[in-house]
Simulated assay, not measured.
Amino acid sequence: MNVLLGVTGSIAAYKAAEITNRLTKMGHNVDVLLTESGSRFITPLTLQTLSKNKVYMDMFEEIVPSEVKHISLAKKADLVLIAPATANIIGKIAGGIADDFLSTVVMAAANHTPVYIAPAMNTNMYENPIVQENIEKLTRLGYHFIEPKASLLACGDLGKGALADVEDIIKTITEHEI
Rank of each mutant, 00 (worst) to 15 (best):
S66M: 08
G6R: 07
E147I: 07
T86I: 13
H176G: 07
A150C: 03
I19Q: 01
T20V: 10
I93T: 13
L138A: 12
L81R: 02
P44Y: 14
G161M: 04
A98M: 02
F60E: 00
L4D: 01
T104G: 11
I63N: 04
N21F: 14
E177Q: 11
M107C: 05
M125A: 13
M26P: 01
L79W: 03
V55T: 09
I130T: 06
L81Q: 03
T20Q: 03
V131H: 06
A164Y: 02
A118H: 04
V55H: 14
V7S: 05
T43Y: 05
A16E: 03
K25N: 14
N88R: 03
T24H: 14
E167I: 14
H112E: 03
V115G: 11
D165N: 12
N2F: 11
V55L: 15
G95W: 03
I170P: 06
T113K: 00
M121A: 12
G142N: 03
I11P: 04
E175V: 07
I93Y: 04
T24W: 08
Q48H: 04
L138T: 05
I63Q: 01
T20G: 09
A154F: 10
E62T: 14
V30T: 10
L47I: 08
A77L: 02
D58Y: 13
V131P: 02
L158F: 14
F41K: 07
L23F: 03
E147Q: 05
I93R: 11
H176M: 08
S151W: 00
A16H: 06
H70L: 00
V105K: 01
K160R: 11
G27T: 05
V64R: 02
T139R: 12
K69P: 00
I89F: 14
A85T: 01
F145D: 00
A16K: 01
H70R: 01
V7I: 07
E177A: 07
D165Q: 11
S103H: 05
M1G: 12
E67L: 07
K171R: 12
N88E: 14
G38R: 09
V105M: 08
E36R: 14
V32Q: 03
Y56I: 07
T8M: 13
L34H: 04
G91I: 10
E61P: 06
N53A: 05
P44F: 15
N29W: 06
G156Q: 02
A83Y: 10
A94T: 08
G38L: 14
G6C: 13
P84F: 13
I63M: 05
I63C: 05
V80N: 04
L163V: 08
T8N: 11
S39C: 10
Y126E: 02
N21V: 05
M125F: 12
M125S: 04
D168S: 10
A74M: 12
Y126R: 06
L5M: 08
R40W: 03
E136L: 07
H176E: 13
A120D: 11
D168W: 02
A164P: 00
R140A: 15
H144A: 04
V7C: 09
E177F: 02
L153Q: 07
I146V: 02
K54Y: 13
T104W: 10
I90T: 01
L158S: 08
D78N: 13
M1E: 04
G159Q: 02
F145A: 06
N124K: 15
V115N: 09
V7L: 09
I71A: 09
T123V: 15
N128S: 10
K69C: 00
I97C: 05
E136Q: 12
E133H: 09
